[in-house]
């Protein structure tokens, strides 16, 4: 299946792959199911730092990368994002929209973990 230009750009050159230890991690999916996303969050002066790790198709990796871009620098309470924001921006077709939902689920789990800190 062909991917949109936006998906391919983020898949080929993701900007937000997590390299360091983060304050909180939220996970969704599993390798066995074919895709897994980790969203890593940290707070610096109430400003979010976000990164990701992902195993999955190009749309999964692009969804995680775009989500981190939206989260980075936002207010620490910024957890109202919906999957439609990712679907629209990356032009995900119906068969790939679960990738955006997976990223959102990982993000919510990450905020939950962050709130407990």
């Amino acid at each position: 299946m062909a991917h949109s230009k936006q998906v391919l750009q983020r898949f080929n050159c993701p900007q937000h792959v997590q390299v360091d230890q983060a304050e909180a991690v939220g996970t969704a999916g599993s390798r066995l199911a074919g895709s897994q996303i980790e969203i890593h969050l940290s707070r610096r002066d109430k400003v979010l730092q976000a990164g990701f790790k992902a195993y999955g198709c190009p749309a999964t990796i692009a969804s995680a990368d775009y989500l981190c871009e939206l989260l980075k620098g936002a207010n620490a309470k910024f957890d109202e994002l919906e999957r439609h924001a990712i679907i629209r921006a990356l032009e995900l077709p119906a068969a790939r929209q679960h990738c955006a939902a997976l990223a959102i689920e990982a993000m919510r789990n990450a905020f939950e973990a962050l709130d407990k800190k």
Partner: peptide
């Protein structure tokens, strides 16, 4: 092992 097939082909 450790990579997803479609991503591998796309990469």
């Amino acid at each position: 092992d450790g990579v997803e097939g479609e991503s591998l082909v796309t990469a």
